[in-house]
Design a protein around this nucleic acid. Structure first.
Lengths: 352, 352
DNA sequence: CGGAGCATGGAGAGCGCTTTCCGAAGTGTT
DNA sequence: AACACTTCGGAAAGCGCTCTCCATGCTCCG
């Protein structure tokens, strides 16, 4: 018997479950059961309740619900930065970098369909980290995806110690039993080395990222190893910090120190863009005089001129996988710590 | 009298305020007062309580607190998309676009210091919008920053009707009494027109964005008006969708239809990048044969080759202002609806 | 010296929801 | 027809916190 009445306002305040129950003529418990689709409720009451929901305009209060269920339907994306970068400039550069957007996009593609929202958190200081972990233990979020920037970050360990479901994007620098999704950075770098040597480069240099971050050191190691295998025992190397400007100045240094250089592997596309600029300034043709291979296959790669030959880094897929892994971990606290490593591939364009 | 004891575990569960009170030997109310820094608490008890907090390792439960205070310390960044884009490809492109990152960076620069976290929400369907507004009315977030993509978006109106504190980045397409922060897009476009005409271009075209989004139509209007003022009653125009590829194909079209074109204003940098590619393919020199002016002054502008002359769009500042505006509105529900318009400026580089 | 006035801390009522625990009713078995 | 067994709805106990209300004890003034 559907009581098709009009709207039932409940005064100033928003309708609560109590109101729905009253309008439907059942107890709060029953209303709750119906709304949450719990088994065993008389179809008649079922309809009565939904009818009341419609008439009152009831919307469950997620906060109140979370308080008792200990589930928030939220996953935190934590950007863990080192204290020194606590000021704006660096972070805003970080956000503008395609890296951040690609990660968010990948995460959202999965979370969105699951109806989970993403909360962005940035922690720089020790205190912020402690606070974050404290909130997380209370179920502020059901789990976290960690983007760890500094080389040795205490956060991963803090998270696992606190028993917070967490997944890192990029392996932890220190051995920590934490789930992570990563790229075989060394293999990717080797791909670049093979390609540069294969196209006949005699002296190839590398523009690396900060040595203390795993993704960066893995690329260095992989590149060096592969070059050595090709008989290049030593490769000139200059470090940047993943920004375009740093790539530009690194390239200048390389050019000054080794004028005969005819190939360069750059640890990310943004720096490669800078390198391209420096090369053009120096009057070197790319790839004619100097071949350039980037890393990431970000949107910058196709925007570059000449278009960048680069190592594809399926960041969106990896982030999506991280989200899936995290959701699985949340649903099964006993899940064993696991990692997923993606294989990179070389995308040939014009720069090499 | 500080009772400096050791740690006081409370069993499996996390310590609650109740535990702190018990350890400190005061009532829950007093403990709460101390922790929240409420006036009039005996200094002795004050110390006793903080001591207990330390010994129990107490961290307030934000959820429980929010339930009663009706404040969450969270602001939602809502990306309102049109239903048709509900599938991945578009959204992931959106996130990879510097636009998104710049907005997030700007927001975070303000929110971070205020200790407010950002929750990302994407709504595409009508149902998702309704749901979002429902949650928001319950105080799921203290306010929202809206990034509205489609031309005619019902969300702004829904938000104001529901009384949810909201600020848009970019003016609403339809007249809605909502706070917003925007750029004088027309002025910016006029700047571009002046510059192109000023450098002697005879036939300049425009690569526009979707006509139904305000930012885009304002740029079109401003550009046309200014060109008309310079005696160019008509300008060839092709539309894209703000992506690099669309800019590339728009440029090809323009080139085919008007081979004598010697200047082009592109509604955003990403499309300008594409235009640059098309021009190079067509063997046209930039700026020699064709001068190109972009819009946004995103990182893509400096990455371009030649570097893009573009209209500066202080998106980070605007987003930061949006955050401040929103926080003010949250603290003062009676605040009148206000808007802040930023003035653009021309950044001269090599492309024009 | 008595009572008004104030500073202070405790008891307890919620915030809105889920879920356990029960009793009442319905179903099937011997 | 009596029993065990299942199904179903309601009462009520929280989740962890804030904050109003009230009782207490003290100061101060006439």
């Amino acid at each position: 018997m559907t009581t098709t009445g009009g709207r039932v306002p409940v005064g100033e305040r928003l309708p609560t479950l109590e109101d729905v129950a009253r309008v439907a003529g059942v107890s709060r418990a029953t209303a709750s059961r119906v709304i949450n689709g719990i088994r065993n409720v008389d179809p008649q009451l079922h309809e009565l309740v939904w009818d009341a929901v419609g008439r009152t305009g009831y919307v469950p209060n997620r906060l109140a619900r979370s308080l008792v269920t200990r589930r928030t339907g939220t996953i935190a994306l934590v950007v863990s930065d080192s204290e020194s970068h606590d000021d704006d400039p660096f972070m805003s550069r970080f956000f503008a970098d395609p890296y951040f957007g690609r990660v968010v996009g990948g995460l959202m593609s999965v979370l969105r369909t699951a109806g989970i929202q993403l909360a962005l958190q940035i922690v720089g200081t020790e205190e912020q980290r402690t606070r974050l972990v404290g909130d997380l233990r209370h179920g502020q979020a059901d789990g976290v995806v960690v983007l760890s920037l500094p080389g040795h970050d205490p956060l991963p360990r803090m998270l696992t110690d606190a028993g917070v479901p967490a997944v890192m994007i990029g392996r932890p620098a220190d051995p920590v039993p934490i789930n992570y999704v990563d790229l075989a950075n060394d293999t990717g770098a080797a791909l670049a080395a093979d390609h540069l040597v294969g196209r006949g480069c005699r002296l190839v240099g590398m523009i690396a990222g900060p040595a203390d971050v795993p993704a960066s050191s893995d690329r260095i190691a992989g590149f060096r190893r592969s070059m050595a295998r090709h008989g290049h025992a030593w490769v000139p190397q200059v470090s940047g910090n993943f920004t375009q400007e740093s790539g530009e100045s690194a390239m200048r240094t390389l050019l000054t120190d080794h004028p005969e250089i005819d190939g360069v592997f750059v640890a990310n596309d943004l720096m490669a863009l800078g390198a391209l600029l420096a090369l053009r300034d120096a009057g070197r043709e790319v790839p004619g005089d100097v071949a350039v291979v980037g890393f990431d296959d970000s949107s910058a790669a196709t925007a570059a001129n000449p278009a960048l030959t680069t190592v594809r880094h399926p960041l969106e897929d990896m982030a999506a996988e991280a989200a899936r892994l995290l959701m699985a971990r949340i649903d099964d606290p006993a899940m064993r710590v696991s990692s997923v490593i993606y294989e990179p591939s070389l995308v040939r364009r014009q720069s090499a």
